[in-house]
Amino acid sequence: MSNPQVRVALILLGIVFLKSNGNHREVLATRTAGRVSECPRDEKEWWIASKRLNCSDDAISPVNRYHCLPAENLTTLLEFCYNRTRPQVVNGLCMVFIEKKNIVNHYNCSKFNEGCPNKSYYSNEIYNFPACLEIDPTQRCYKAELSCQQSTRFLTDVLNTTMSTLVNDTSRTMKKNVRIFYLVIILSVIILVGVIGAYVVWKIHHTMYINRIINYGNSRATGCCSRSETVDFEY
């Protein structure tokens, strides 16, 4: 009942492709890989992750094993079940995952300062070589590589210098702003005191003027002022 073409297509999807090229070998991987912040660091964590993805935990069968590897461009870590025979990796090589092709590829780690595998291992046992799982996604390199460490150190120095400059500039700006703030406060107090002083002087002068008018009115009412008497009401 099944279409022969469909059966052929399903068979082709299950074929494992091997491509030999020097120290590199690519193997077809299966299922959609998921991004993780870090890979399991030991056998127990690896087993727990395998259970979570429902990968095979058969100690005898080498197929459908859990894998967690850096992406080919070293920007992230990817985990997946590889339902074909786990490849054996020779010493001096780590492994990466080419997500677009769903294949596992070897990475020459001879430039590592330390941590490059010194013996052969199975791909699902890469947790025994943590340096193969430690990447700098920003620099897209393995942290164990000298060039990666130099780039990271350079960026760290630049960042520290920039932060130091910003802190110093901010400190100077704050000090300047504080001086301006105090100057504004002092000027405001001076102006306020001047205004209050001027008002007090005006108030005293005005009160004296009102009192003189009242006194003059009283003297007129009692007839105490002669015709020749003059009163200055200048204000």
Score class of each variant (00 low, 15 high):
Leu69Thr: 05
Asn124Tyr: 12
Ile103Cys: 01
Lys143Gly: 00
Ala144Val: 05
Pro87Cys: 00
Lys44Thr: 07
Ser164Val: 00
Tyr122His: 11
Gln5Leu: 09
Leu155Phe: 02
Val201Phe: 14
Glu72Cys: 02
Met163Ser: 12
Val195Cys: 02
Arg41Lys: 13
Ala198Met: 06
Gln88Pro: 04
Val16Asp: 15
Ile214Gln: 15
Ile213Thr: 08
Arg25His: 10
Ile180Tyr: 12
Tyr107Ile: 01
Ile15Ser: 04
Arg212Thr: 08
Gly197Arg: 10
Cys109Gly: 00
Leu69Arg: 03
Val16Lys: 13
Val104Asn: 05
Leu12Gln: 14
Met163Phe: 12
Cys225Trp: 08
Asp136Pro: 07
Asn108Trp: 01
Asn218Ala: 08
Asn23Trp: 01
Ile196Thr: 06
Thr156Leu: 06
Ile135Gly: 09
Thr222Lys: 15
Leu183Gln: 13
Arg86Met: 06
His67Arg: 11
Cys141Gln: 09
Phe112Trp: 05
Arg52Tyr: 04
Ile210Tyr: 08
Ser219Pro: 08
Ala59Gly: 13
Ser164Gln: 08
Arg140Val: 02
Asn64Ile: 03
Arg212Asp: 00
Cys94Arg: 05
Asn73Gly: 01
Asn118Gln: 14
Pro137Gly: 06
Thr85Asp: 05
Pro70Cys: 06
Pro40Gln: 03
Phe129Gly: 03
Ser147Glu: 12
Asn73Pro: 03
Leu77Arg: 12
Val193His: 03
Ile135Ser: 07
Arg52Phe: 08
Ser120His: 01
Asp57Cys: 01
Cys68Ala: 09
Ala49Ile: 09
Glu145Ile: 00
Tyr122Ala: 10
Val6Ser: 02
Phe233Trp: 03
Ile15Phe: 02
Tyr66Thr: 00
Pro4Lys: 12
Thr85Leu: 10
Glu234Gln: 10
Phe129Cys: 08
His205Ala: 12
Val89Pro: 07
Ser20Glu: 09
Val158Gln: 14
Asn218His: 07
Arg153Phe: 05
Cys141Ala: 11
Glu114Cys: 00
Arg41Pro: 05
Cys224Leu: 15
Asn54Leu: 05
Thr170Asp: 04
Ile213Cys: 04
Arg220Tyr: 09
Asp232Leu: 07
Arg31Gln: 11
Val16Tyr: 08
Val90Trp: 08
Ser61Leu: 05
Asn108Lys: 10
Lys51His: 06
Ser228Leu: 07
Ile103Pro: 01
Leu155Trp: 06
Arg7Leu: 10
Cys39His: 00
Gly217Asn: 11
Val27Asn: 03
Ile210Glu: 13
His206Ala: 01
Thr230Ser: 12
Ile60Ser: 10
Ile204Thr: 13
Leu159Glu: 11
Arg227Lys: 10
Asn3Tyr: 07
Asn73Glu: 09
Ala198Ile: 02
Arg25Tyr: 09
Glu79Leu: 11
Ser37Val: 01
Asn118Pro: 00
Ser61Asn: 14
Ser164Pro: 01
Glu134Phe: 08
Asn128His: 15
Cys55Glu: 06
Phe80Asp: 09
Pro62Lys: 00
